[in-house]
Design a protein around this nucleic acid. Structure first.
Lengths: 160, 160
DNA sequence: GTCTGCAATGTGATCTTGTAACAACCTTAC
DNA sequence: GTAAGGTTGTTACAAGATCACATTGCAGAC
């Protein structure tokens, strides 16, 4: 597998690569990759867990980068709009994107025991949703695909 | 199609059938189908829209069935646990189940213009999520599949 | 150089959604 | 009848998200 699953790996790469890609993307489009936006992305890239807006805000506050909810939400909105982060609806939380290379409709595996989240690829028009939409004459604009359960390390049947 | 899509139909059937099925289900399992639970199910069955817990609470309050948030949330938790209703994560709202007959992993089509929601069938182990889970050794316990977009009536390209 | 307009930030207030905790009540089993 | 467990009533509060408006900072126009 080329994209990180539940296996251990080096986070430094995740962070450096993610920030670099965002930097490039923003430069190309004349978008401002401001300190708050950069820092929020770094925070998200630092963990393969979904972080709530207020958890992020706590960190920003401690670092003097902003103390009110809109600060965090604005940065998150920007990151989500640019595809650098995704919202995990089931958790009301956010996670850095791990498939920056291509346009994609993300799907997530969320471990309810250790809270880790893995992003998988998905074709927005494929699968059950696409089939149902086609049958109903429905035009899909956005999809939410999230599975909750146990990751290999937390599954009792097959302890890593 | 045997299950209601976005076509018009008679809601009285939806409500009567849904309540009757829930009544049977509860009787079989010695579960209490109390007035609040019944009423909340009726309210949900009355519309093919997702209703927020506080919208439901407003109705209960007006009818003297309870005025505090836990009243609504408890009834909703019960209905969801029994499969009579589903939570729409994308909306933080709830909708009556329209596929009571069988065990299923629901998928939803949500129209952002008229707010109607249609439930489709889905195999929990199938599709992108199932494939990703299998590849990662992940055990799925619950899935969220929601598509947001425009229903046939609200789609500009193809006005009903 | 200065003006203008837009994007981003700072901040207080408020709104929405969801839970914790505990008392009171009702139903069922024994 | 009584004990146990499920259900409801109610207060309080936690968590998540947005609104509104003032302010700042920078890029392009003049």
């Amino acid at each position: 597998m080329s994209s990180p699953g539940f296996e251990p790996h080096d986070h430094h790469h995740c962070i450096a690569d993610g920030v670099a890609a965002a930097e490039r993307h923003c430069a190309e489009r004349r978008l401002q990759f401001t300190p708050v936006r950069r820092r929020v992305l770094e925070i998200l890239l630092g963990q393969h867990k979904a972080l709530g807006a207020y958890e992020i805000l706590d960190i920003l506050r401690a670092e003097g980068l902003g103390s009110q909810p809109p600060v965090a939400y604005r940065a998150l909105d920007f990151l989500v709009a640019q595809g650098f982060a995704h919202r995990i609806e089931r958790r009301n939380a956010f996670i850095a994107c791990t498939h920056l290379e291509q346009r994609h409709a993300p799907a997530f595996l969320i471990c309810r025991a250790c809270d880790r989240v893995v992003e998988a690829q998905a074709d927005p028009e494929a699968g059950e949703l696409g089939r149902a939409a086609q049958a109903a004459g429905f035009v899909i604009e956005r999809t939410v695909r999230e599975a909750e359960g146990l990751c290999p390390d937390c599954s009792p049947g097959m302890p890593a």
